[in-house]
Design a protein around this nucleic acid. Structure first.
Lengths: 341, 341
DNA sequence: CTGAAAGCGCTAACAT
DNA sequence: ATGTTAGCGCTTTCAG
C-alpha cells in the first residue's frame, strides 16, 4: 500500500492539513516544518493521490483527447505535441480512440468528462448538435470544426484547397475532381467550398466525388469514378485517400502524374515516401496540438462561469508542398480534321 | 453540475446505498425499486462518478499504456487494439508518450500508477532494474521485453530474423549485415542472437552494424557503413530503418534489390508503400495489444497478493512477407583472366 | 431487501 | 503557522 497523507503526518509529527499545505501552498507553512514534512514524505515515498485530490478540488489535472482513429497518421504528431505541451504545465493528456464510431465517441465523452478537466475533440464524427448537448460540465476544445459557442482550433484547409486548385490550373488542367471526405467532416466541407470557389474563379470544371472513407482503402475505391469522370487532376480529402488512389491508378497502369495529377492534404510521413512523392497541402498538426492544449488550459483556468461563456478560436495556416505527383496534363488528342487555325 | 447519487436517491425516494447497489449489485435490490431508481437516474442523466468510486473501491477501471513514441507507426495499431479490447470489458486505456525519454517514462509510471488499475509498458526505455523498482503497487505487463517477475507479451522476432536470413541465403547471398536497434531494446537483442545463429548455421558472413536509432533517419545514417561492409543483403531492426536505408541507397544510385537486398521488421503500413515494396517480418501488433490487455486484466482481477506473485507470458508468432526489396545478389564480377574450367 | 453510518485520501474554510 | 472540522461522491459493512 502506498503511503498516505496520514502516514506522513504521523511520521513528521504534524497534522494532516499541514502536510496537505506543504504540497499545495508551501509558502503558507513554516520553512522548518516544511523541510521536516518533505523529509518524511521522501522517506515514505509519499506522493499525493491525484484521484483523491480531484474529489475535493474538482481538478484532476488530466486532459482528455479524443480522436477518430489513432492509426490515421495525421493524429500522432498532434497527440505528441499536445502531450508535450500539457506536460510542461503539470497536466497529463489521456488519449482515446473512437474507431470512427459516433456512439463510441459519445460514450467516451461522457465517461471521460468526469475524469478530466477538459476535453479535446479532434475531428469529431458526432453532429454539432450532439456535441453541443454533451458540452455541459467541462470545457471543450474542438480541432477542425467550427461549432457555435465552442472553442476551436482550425486549420485553414480552405486556403490550401484553393492553392491546390490554382496549382493544377496553372499547370494547364481544365477538368478536376475532388474526392470528398466523410459527410460529418467540417474539414471536408471547407475543402469542398474552397475548391468549388477556386474552380469557378478559374473557369474550370470540378467534379465532386464522394463521400469517401478517409483511408487508403477509400482512395482505392474511388479510382473507377475518377477514371469515369475523365479528369486530369484530383484533389483528395487527405493524403491517405490520395495514396490509395495512386495505388489503384498504378494497378490500372494509369500514370501519375503522366495522365492524372494527384494532390493530397496533410503532408503525413507517407506522402514523401509515396511513389510518386505526393504533392500535398501541409497542415500544421503539431502547432494545432499545442494550440488546442493552450486554449483548453486557458478555459480550465477560468472560473467555471466564465469558461462557459468564453469561446476561443485559433486559425492555423496551411502550405502547398509541390512534389512529383502533379505535372501538366497530357497533350489533348489532336481533334480529327486537324487544328483549326 | 452533474447529478450525484444523492439526487437520484432523493428523486426515487430511497437511500443512497440503495442507489449504489442498483449500479454495483443489481440483483441485491428489489426489481421494482430497481426500475424506479433506474428511471430516476435516467431522468437526471446520472452516471456514477468513476473517480469517487475509485476512492472507495480502489479500482479506477482505467488502464495506462505507455509508449516511447506514438508517432512510430508500429504503435498505433497496438494501441487501437488494446483500447478496443479493454472497452469490451468496461475499461478505458489511457495512452501516454514518453518521447523516448527514460525520465519522462519514470515520471509517467509514477503518476499513472495511482490513476489506473494496471500499466502496459510498450517497448520501455527504462532498465530492467528501474522497472522492477517501480513495479510496486499495481500490475504491469511489458510488451517486447522479458523481465524476471513481470508479465510479458513477446513477439518471436527471433524466429522472424532467422527466416529472413534463410530467405536471403536461399536467394544466394553470402555476405549479410544486420542493422541493430537501440541498446536498451530487448527486441534488438533477440534479432541479433537469432540472426547470428542462423548465419552461422548457413555458413554465411554476418556483420552487425549499430546501434542505430529506430527511425528512418537512423537507416539513412547507416547507409555508408552498409556500403563499406560490402554486403549484398541487409536485415534492419525495423521497417523505418529499412526504409531510411533504401532511401539513402537510392540517393547513391545503389539499386535495391538489384545490388543490395533489404529486409525490414514489423510490416508497418509504409512497408508496402515503399519503393520498392519492402520484404519484411510481420509482427502481430494488434494481437499483442489484445493479449497485453487480457493479461493485465487477468492480473487486475486477482487478489492483490496473488497478482504480485503471478507472472504471465505470451509469445506471438511472426511471419516473413516477401515483397520486392529482396532478390538474388548481383552476379559476381568475372575474375580477371576468365573462368578457370 | 433497505437504511444508517463510517470511511476512502485529500483539501478548504474556520478557528486558534 | 498550525490544528479542527467538514465533506467531495461513492461503496460497504452492519443493523433492522
Amino acid at each position: 500500500m502506498p503511503a498516505t497523507i496520514r502516514d506522513v503526518a504521523r511520521a513528521s509529527g504534524v497534522h494532516v492539513s499541514t502536510v496537505s499545505r506543504t504540497f499545495t501552498a508551501p509558502h503558507k507553512v513554516n520553512a522548518e516544518t516544511r523541510t521536516r514534512v518533505l523529509a518524511a514524505a521522501a522517506e515514505l515515498g509519499y506522493r499525493p493521490n491525484r484521484v483523491a485530490r480531484a474529489l475535493t478540488t474538482g481538478r484532476t489535472h488530466n486532459l482528455g483527447l479524443i480522436v477518430a482513429d489513432i492509426a490515421n497518421p495525421f493524429f500522432p504528431p498532434l497527440i505528441k505535441a499536445a502531450q508535450a505541451q500539457a506536460r510542461g504545465r503539470d497536466y497529463h493528456v489521456f488519449v482515446a480512440d473512437t474507431d470512427e464510431d459516433p456512439r463510441v465517441e459519445e460514450e467516451l465523452i461522457q465517461t471521460l468528462a468526469r475524469q478530466v478537466d477538459g476535453l479535446l475533440l479532434c475531428g469529431p464524427r458526432l453532429s454539432n448538435r450532439a456535441i453541443t448537448r454533451l458540452h455541459t460540465n467541462i470545457p471543450f476544445v474542438v480541432v477542425n470544426r467550427r461549432i457555435k459557442g465552442i472553442s476551436a482550433v482550425l486549420m485553414d484547409v480552405g486556403h490550401g484547397a484553393r492553392q491546390a486548385v490554382e496549382h493544377l490550373t496553372g499547370l494547364g488542367h481544365r477538368r478536376l475532381a475532388l474526392l470528398a471526405g466523410p459527410e460529418a467532416s467540417w474539414t471536408s466541407q471547407q475543402i469542398r467550398d474552397a475548391a468549388e470557389d477556386a474552380a469557378a474563379a478559374q473557369g474550370v470544371e470540378l467534379t465532386v466525388l464522394g463521400p469517401n472513407s478517409p483511408t487508403e482503402h477509400g482512395g482505392r475505391l474511388a479510382a473507377p469514378d475518377v477514371l469515369a469522370a475523365g479528369v486530369t487532376g484530383v484533389l483528395a480529402y487527405n493524403d491517405l485517400v490520395a495514396i490509395g488512389l495512386t495505388e489503384a491508378l498504378a494497378a490500372e497502369r494509369v500514370e501519375v502524374p503522366g495522365r492524372i495529377s494527384v494532390i493530397g492534404i496533410d503532408d503525413i510521413m507517407h506522402a514523401r515516401l509515396n511513389r510518386p512523392p505526393l504533392t500535398t497541402v501541409a497542415t500544421p498538426t503539431m502547432a494545432a496540438g499545442r494550440a488546442a492544449v493552450d486554449a483548453l488550459l486557458q478555459l480550465v483556468g477560468r472560473a467555471d462561469g466564465d469558461a462557459a461563456t468564453t469561446t476561443l478560436e485559433t486559425i492555423l495556416e496551411t502550405t502547398l508542398i509541390v512534389r512529383d505527383s502533379t505535372a501538366p496534363p497530357p497533350a489533348p488528342p489532336v481533334p480529327l480534321g486537324g487544328t483549326r487555325s
